[in-house]
Amino acid sequence: MKTIVVACAGGIATSGTVASKINMELESRGFDHLAKADAIDIKSLEMYLQGADIYVSITPFSQGEYNIPVVSGIPFLTGVGIDEVMEQIVEKL
């Protein structure tokens, strides 16, 4: 079981929404036995990244900035481009 972390400023609203949607998408694609998304507080990001496999960022980022793969969480908020970003996530599972 891999861990996908989604961070926002409080680990509640934005990240909670994105994490829920990722979990719904994983389920509808039949990958929910492989990974689970969890919302975390960005202030403690470094602590949580140690136990994570994929980081979903809702702020601008550059690849290689973290030790694990990063994908954008914005599509889950706007509803545009969810399939593409889900492909990126599934590829890394």
């Binding site: 926002c8 400023a9 409080g10 609203a13 934005t14 990240s15 960005i42 960022s57 809702i58 702020t59 601008p60 980022f61 914005i74 908020l77 706007t78």
Partner: peptide, 8 residues
């Protein structure tokens, strides 16, 4: 959207 898209 909520504000945390600025949190970076």
């Amino acid at each position: 959207l909520d504000w945390p898209i600025l949190a970076g």
